[in-house]
Design a protein around this nucleic acid. Structure first.
Lengths: 211, 211
DNA sequence: CTTGACAACTTAACAACGTTAAGGAGACTC
DNA sequence: GAGTCTCCTTAACGTTGTTAAGTTGTCAAG
């Protein structure tokens, strides 16, 4: 009841609430109520709502890095593991990718894991610039993928009704490839992500390594 | 003064205004004022604000497809041209990528160009599913890239002061690769996009073609 | 002409939002 | 025991998306 409130607790509570109400429903008053506090109290800990969202993204990143453990030795596995972890953590929260993307982090906890990942790449034939480019390219793919994934609604293959593919097929009867593409894109996001990720990593090896 | 207002005019005006005020400043009252009309009038043409944003994204897509012309014959060039066009149109508007991503289109004008692009791929050794995966992978990369690009602010190489790289380098003195990565990522977005795109396309050729 | 209907707006108002100003309770210091 | 600092409350402001109800213009039917 009379718990001590600090930045970490606010951000954690906000992330929990995010899963229940989504980004639209994530108001300062709702977060405050969850903390048994009135809305203006949050302004003691954060200068405005954007600062709170930045902190939430930073907490997501910290948790992701905490899950990291030993890095794989092969650079392909290092990138693949990191991107799977990134996607998994973005998917843990409703609209997680939207919250994460385009915020900038409130501390430097990202630097150490990033340095280790980049060192794996440079130790394997990448120039520093090439490693950075590889990292940014894979991250862009992952974030873009998850944004679309979360915007599409629940994965139909996992039970939930995400999108009416039959109706879509009827509207697009004149465009058979577009129909097939829809069925490819709306089904089984896990497999789809892996296929795209494999392509991105393979391409990084071909065009970015050693340049 | 007494122009006829319809959905297309509203969406076009909103897109123009977007460049002046950004997504945060894009209120219904501001859009209405631009049209010499009061805010509730917009509800005659759109059921709510989200429907207007969907229409804006659709207009962006239509303009993109209008710029399309003859498709390149090689599948690599088809994807590269399409993704450069996508990025260029997302960049035409402030927060363009955020508006575009995660909205769903209000008509079927996307189907015909998509079908033609996919046909280029299937005519070049891709299965329908492989072509769809290739398309979605490249689009995810492009959208993710532009979201980060627009969130980072203006390209420092083009004059504007986007981000203080010197201060960043000082904070991260213990992490030399992360410093180098920052300089790679914050400079010259055009070249960075091309390098990542080349990697993605190369990887698509290796892992997705003929499967 | 008048009537009536429909389309395209206006005026007025609502609840909810982010945010600020001012103040109060409780603990810690000198 | 007075003063200061931290952390929160109460009250309020201006804006936002949105709804309800009424007004104007247009046009066809009788």
């Amino acid at each position: 009841m009379a718990k001590k409130i600090d930045r970490a607790l606010v951000a954690d509570t906000a992330l929990r609430l995010l899963n229940e109400v989504g980004l639209e429903g994530l108001t300062l008053r709702a977060i405050a109520k969850e903390l048994d506090v009135k809305a203006p109290a949050l302004y003691w800990h954060f200068k405005d709502k954007k600062a709170l969202l930045d902190e939430m993204a930073t907490v997501m990143l910290r948790r992701m890095n905490a899950d990291l453990g030993e890095l794989p030795a092969r650079w392909q596995d290092a990138i693949a593991t990191a991107m799977r972890g990134l996607r998994a953590h973005l998917l843990r929260y409703r609209d997680g990718a939207k919250v994460y993307s385009g915020t900038h982090f409130t501390d430097m906890s990202y630097a150490d894991p990033m340095e280790r990942h980049l060192r794996t790449l440079t130790g394997d034939g990448f120039t520093p610039a090439g490693a950075a480019r590889a990292w940014f390219t894979a991250s862009s793919y992952t974030i873009g993928y998850v944004i679309e994934e979360q915007a599409m609604g629940p994965d139909p293959v996992k039970g939930g009704e995400g999108y009416d593919l039959a109706a879509r097929a009827e509207r697009l009867a004149a465009y058979p490839l577009a129909v097939a593409a829809g069925e490819e894109m709306f089904r089984d996001h896990d497999r789809g992500f892996e296929e795209g990720l494999a392509a991105v990593i393979a391409g990084i090896g071909v065009t970015l390594r050693g340049s």
